[in-house]
Design a protein around this nucleic acid. Structure first.
Lengths: 64, 64
DNA sequence: CAATATTGTCAAATACTCTTTACATTTTTA
DNA sequence: TAAAAATGTAAAGAGTATTTGACAATATTG
């Protein structure tokens, strides 16, 4: 599963910490997901999409 | 998190078992998600959406 | 009605998500 | 260049997702 979090976050000019705060998770969680250590839960995927003004289907790319 | 899995599955006239097979999970997993016992992983959300000919953003409704 | 398919549910075990704490490295800014 | 901010990473533990096996209840079909 790939994602465009880093690109959209930078386009919005916010830090991992700020995005993490908006989504109510830790900075390390955002960092791990950006660097594809693991996939977020479905709820967190929705929270990330919302805070980056996009949709889950465009933020994440299921490689199948 | 709400979802429209049951409605779309019935519209397609397939059983929980068939949908589970397509997504490579157990019947119990599909049943639990339909009945909102817990949310699927992000990957399974994409698999469910794809097999029901829809998108994650329309199949699931994040209540926030 | 009887047989079969489908669905609901439960408990125990395993795998994965996420947090916390901590420290190192890189980037930005004064 | 020095200080501050941002990022990368790792280990341990809590909480959640999924599997397996099993049994009961409901719906469908012959």
């Amino acid at each position: 599963m790939k994602n465009q979090i880093k690109e959209l976050r930078k386009a919005k000019k916010i830090s991992q910490q700020e995005l993490a705060d908006y989504c109510k998770v830790t900075r390390q969680t955002v960092n791990a997901i950006e660097n594809e250590k693991y996939d977020p839960s479905l709820q967190l995927a929705f929270d990330l999409a919302r805070n980056l003004n996009t949709t889950v289907d465009t933020l994440f790319i299921s490689e199948k």
